[in-house]
């Protein structure tokens, strides 16, 4: 069967055309020498020559903040106002680790309470993933059983066949529909450019044994190793906010005499205020306790609940950390301790 090919110009045209309509398009954009996946308009230049975006694709589906309740008060009483319905989304520019993260996060937002804000957006989203051509020392998707060419969570995967063009592969029916609907942008080709070098699963070394991490965390919650591993952390939320699977949020009310707005905001377990009680007691007072929570949630508690690790190995937290915390290194250490039976 002939393969479907799309090149940069055509893809840009396609995304810009969609962005002109009712659909929101998220795509990589260059801002001050770094690439971010953000909402674009019809004329935003799309940046293709990037390795991995600083932020993750979660911003499209789980925005930094969103209204969940609006009301006005007048003489007749309290009146609820409508929250506009979610618009369909085309989410382009994530890598397989990003796409996989959507499958991880979905479980939480559809668990004890069906978070329809998340689910509505997710159900209306077409995920177009760029298979990886590069990796760096912070990448570790293979350690978690994912692949730089993985299809988990994507609707369409684009694999580079040259610097300027991709082979499009529909993974889901919705992906197929999308390609059929926009078939004028895709071309058929029988001979892919074999000379183009990309990376395979074997290029990214498996750094640690993912199944060994959880039992070690369970048994060594009070281990002194935690302090050694995380003493550098200065407790900001950069890692959690760029993480594709960190999903904690806070609900705040902003009310005046005659109107009010309730919003769902990002929040982060790494910040000191996250667990601060009204009494001023803080059960996670020390810096290491907070970073321990981040690791333990991803590799132990989340696994207990949903049978999946809440981490896809993108390495964004390591890249963004100003203090040089490296999650791969920490997990490698935990895994090797577990092998040795150390504490």
């Amino acid at each position: 069967m002939a393969e479907l090919i799309i090149n940069r110009d055509k893809l840009t045209q396609l995304l810009h055309e969609i962005a002109g309509g009712e659909t929101e398009v998220f795509a990589p954009v260059l801002k001050e020498e770094a690439t971010y996946i953000t909402k674009i308009s019809q004329d935003t230049p799309i940046h293709y020559d990037f390795f991995i975006s600083v932020n993750s694709v979660k911003e499209a589906i789980f925005p930094r903040y969103e209204p969940i309740l609006k009301y006005k008060i007048d003489q007749e009483g309290v009146k609820l106002e409508d929250i506009p319905p979610m618009k369909p989304i085309v989410l382009f520019g994530g890598h397989p680790c990003d796409a996989a993260s959507l499958m991880v996060m979905e479980k939480l937002f559809g668990w004890d309470y069906n978070d329809h804000f998340y689910q509505d957006r997710r159900n209306k989203t077409i995920v177009i993933t760029l298979a990886c051509n590069e990796f760096d020392k912070d990448c570790f998707c293979t350690s978690l059983g994912y692949s730089p060419h993985g299809e988990v969570g994507s609707d369409i995967v684009l694999e580079s066949i040259s610097k300027e063009a991709w082979k499009a592969k529909a993974v889901t029916d919705r992906g197929k529909e999308f390609i059929e609907k926009h078939n004028t942008y895709f071309a058929a080709s029988d001979k892919p450019d074999a000379s183009f070098k990309t990376i395979g699963d074997k290029d990214i070394p498996v750094g640690f044994d993912k199944d060994a991490v959880k039992p070690w965390i369970k048994e060594n919650f009070e281990s002194e190793e935690w302090q050694k591993l995380t003493s550098k952390c200065w407790s900001c939320a950069a890692c959690t906010y760029v993480c594709p699977t960190c999903h904690c949020f806070d609900i705040t009310d902003d009310a005046s005499m005659w109107s009010g707005l309730r919003t769902k905001n990002w929040d982060a377990c790494t910040m000191p205020i996250f667990t601060l009680h009204a009494s001023q007691h803080n059960p996670r007072e020390a810096y290491y306790q907070r970073y321990r929570q981040r690791i333990a949630h991803k590799y132990s508690y989340y696994v207990d609940l949903f049978k999946v690790i809440s981490c896809t190995g993108c390495g964004r937290c390591s890249r963004v950390c100003g203090a040089g915390m490296n999650i791969l290194e920490i997990l490698t250490r935990i895994s090797s301790l577990a092998k040795k039976g150390g504490k």
Binding site: W234, Y241, W266, A268
Partner: peptide
């Protein structure tokens, strides 16, 4: 408008040492 309010600036800053920041 790019700020994501991760407070990395505050946490990295040697002069930002308040026990409870005004934003909290």
């Amino acid at each position: 408008s790019k700020c994501i309010r991760c407070y990395a600036c505050r946490q990295a800053c040697p002069m930002c040492y308040c026990n409870r920041c005004i934003v909290d």
